[in-house]
Nucleic acid binder design. Structure first.
Length: 642
RNA sequence: GCUCACGUAGCUCAGUCGGUAGAGCACGUCCUUGGUAAGGACGAGGUCACCGGUUCGAUUCCGGUCGUGAGCUCCA
């Protein structure tokens, strides 16, 4: 006699075990029709699932927060069914739900083409229209292995074989087609109406690059046409803010074949780059860091000692010189900083020693990994290494954490997530050292009062790390900052200090980066702001526009004056109409356009217009500079428009 | 590195079922001195990524290389 408690708190009592569908039907026929799944005691189940005990039940309709999960999962099945209907010898593997959609991996003798995709999508629509009931059944594991082997589904059989023996496997069938699946699924294929196949790509079986490559079909599915349309619009908007496109439009940088993965910075892009460096220089100087600079090339013996040669030799650029020596172009700055630390004798009284460098590093990344500014082979790190005694780890880590979060706020990134990455499989140093390093970093994170999630096995080869992840304007996450506790490299590279008992000790090294890669950080900023960089970072802050050539002298003098006050100014005296000039500089995302015609010249004023199209009226240049000064000083938290 | 797609003017793209190419914008010259998102006329501009092959002839077909894009793998 199950008593079912509904979300509104009401209870219904049934004489015998009931299915979710039956409960829905007993409430109303509309609900019965709309039911996609059920949630019993917080667990998603099929509408055909039977409830025998008292339970809390939510009927999952397309209004329910979990509806998309179920729909996407079922649509992945529909995709597999359609694919096998058209390509009977394609084998199924896995088809999970991912953010905004799903995918399904198939093993097939040839890659699918865009035409295949269109055909599969049409078949899916046909199967949806047929409204095939989806039926769940069960089978013992070993029987399931035999069943799928007999069907020629070797990948599926392999998946089932890895499930513990004796377990019962659930199968879902729709029409003639059947697949292994945990479920739950919608009650019939007719519930799946709003979907679109997005792209096809290769993917390794079980995610291992040594395995064969499968055909992965990506799709998206929603509860309404409007949601699908919004999603596609969202993709278009993201494309519009692509930093590669904006970088070209705003003449910030370019890349070319002869230097794959390396950036040619144009004057405007380099201005922004230099603004980032100037900002960081101020910040870290105030935080007690000393800037240093290490060599780009160092003999391979040094990289052997550090462990880089063994762990990352494949990814290092090397050079053979006429003196028959092999040098590596630095992929990291830390070994260089240790060399600087090693000069002379350090006392515990000198610690912490904080070395910072805007070090350009080169890493031979796999060609397929390159991506605009986001993944390059040559980049500049805002890298620092802090040499400390073991009992300084916590206080220094807390200070660095605060500095990182403080700096992100200046860029408008208030939503920062932190991950704790512990020892990776490929590492140097004993487990005992790793135990200590991880414990120290955890203690430091706790002392800093930050919440973090675990990211197992993702630490650096020499130590565990905290990773700082930014969330941008359109909700994408970017891992930028990092703080690492390193109990390995200082010892391997022979760094020492003398403690208060006159004993030689090995310092602990904290690695820290805040922007991470300046190239990438700038790419993130471009996309975050859609190219409309805040005035304190904008390559050109002010454009001076004349109406006719009678204002030339006035604007030339004004330009000189603004530049002398430290502003980045462009003057447009071309023989063009003002509307044309406004359009061009607005498209160039120049924050403020100062227009002067005869009226302004006569009164000693300028008309101020923002790149957002707002007219701020006339004011004296002095007033403009003062108000802009407030905006720059507040890093854009207060703008002229406010 | 792997799979697939792509590479035509500075940019965005069209085109050639094999006979050495075209638009818009940008650029140059001239006209226009115009008040808040595109004034007009004329002009110049391409080794059709690179290297081979097939062919009387290749930008087009075939093979390779390089690069780019999407995804996978990787990211000290």
């Amino acid at each position: 006699m199950p008593v079912i408690t509904l979300p509104d708190g009401s209870q219904r009592t049934y004489d015998q075990p009931v299915t979710v569908a039956q409960v829905a039907a007993s409430i109303g026929s509309g609900l019965a029709k709309a039911a996609l799944a059920g949630k019993v005691g917080g667990k998603l189940v099929d509408t055909s699932s039977t409830i025998a005990q008292d339970a809390a039940l939510e009927i999952v309709t397309d209004k329910h927060p979990d509806a998309l999960e179920v729909i996407r999962h079922s649509t992945a099945h529909l995709l597999a069914q359609a694919t096998q209907a058209l390509f009977p010898d394609a084998q199924v593997t896995i088809g999970p739900v991912i953010e905004d959609g799903f995918y399904y991996d198939f093993a097939y003798k040839r890659p699918f083409t865009p035409d295949d995709l269109a055909a599969i999508e049409a078949k899916m629509a046909e199967l949806s229209k047929a409204d095939l009931p989806v039926q769940r059944s069960e089978m013992p594991r070993d029987e399931a292995v035999t069943f799928f082997k007999a069907k020629g589904e070797h990948y599926k059989a392999e998946i089932i074989a890895s499930i513990p023996a004796g377990e019962t496997i659930s199968l879902y069938g729709q029409g003639e087609w059947v697949d292994l699946c945990r479920g739950p699924h919608v009650p019939s294929t007719g519930k799946l109406k709003v979907f679109k196949l997005m792209k096809v790509a290769g993917a390794y079986w079980r995610g291992d690059s040594r395995n064969e490559m499968l055909q992965r079909v990506y799709g998206t599915a929603w509860t309404s046409e409007k949601d699908l349309k919004d999603y596609l619009t969202r993709l278009e908007e993201a494309e519009k803010r692509d930093h590669r496109k904006i970088g070209r439009e705003l003449d910030l940088f370019h890349m070319q074949e002869e230097a794959p993965g390396a950036v040619f910075w144009h004057p405007k892009g380099w201005r922004v780059f230099q603004s980032l460096i100037a900002y960081m220089r101020d910040k870290q100087q105030a935080a007690g860091f000393d800037e240093v600079n290490g060599p780009e090339l160092m003999d391979r013996s040094l990289w052997e000692a550090s462990g880089h040669w063994e762990k990352f030799g494949e990814n290092m650029f090397t050079t053979q010189t006429p003196d028959e020596r092999v040098y590596a172009i630095k992929p990291m700055n830390c070994p260089g900083h240790v060399q600087i630390f090693r000069q002379g004798i350090r006392s515990y009284r000198d610690l912490p020693v904080r070395f910072a460098e805007f070090g350009k590093v080169h890493r031979y990344e796999p060609s397929g990994a390159l991506h605009g500014l986001m993944r390059v082979r040559a980049f500049t790190q805002d890298d620092a290494h802090i040499f400390v005694t073991p009992d300084q780890i916590t206080s220094e880590s807390v200070a660095v954490t605060k500095l990182i979060l403080d700096i992100y706020r200046d860029f408008g990134f208030d939503d920062v997530r932190i991950k704790f990455s512990d020892r990776p499989a490929k590492r140097v140093g004993s487990d005992e050292i790793w135990d200590r390093a991880e414990a120290a970093l955890k203690a430091a994170a706790d002392a800093a009062g930050i919440a973090y999630s675990l990211n197992p096995g993702e630490g650096a080869f020499y130590g565990p790390k905290l990773e700082f992840v930014l969330r941008d304007a359109i909700g994408r996450d970017w891992q930028c900052g990092t703080l690492q506790v390193d109990l390995n490299l200082p010892g391997r590279l022979g760094a020492h200090y003398i403690d208060e008992h006159s004993q030689k000790q090995t310092p602990v090294m904290l690695h820290r980066a805040i922007f991470g890669s300046l190239e990438r950080f700038l790419g993130i900023l471009i996309e975050h702001h859609s190219g409309r960089l805040p005035a304190w970072l904008a390559p050109t802050q002010v454009a001076l526009l004349s109406i006719t050539d009678r204002q030339d002298d006035y604007l030339r003098a004004l330009s000189e004056s603004l530049k002398n006050q430290g502003l980045r100014v462009e003057t447009d005296l071309r023989n063009e109409k003002i509307g044309f000039k406004i359009r061009e500089h607005t498209l160039q995302r120049v924050p403020y356009l100062l227009v002067a015609g005869d009226k302004e010249v006569a009164a000693g004023l300028v008309s101020v217009r923002t790149r957002n199209g707002k007219d701020l009226g006339q004011m004296t240049p002095q007033t403009f500079v003062e108000r802009l000064g407030i905006e720059l000083g507040s890093r854009g938290r207060r703008t002229l428009e406010d």
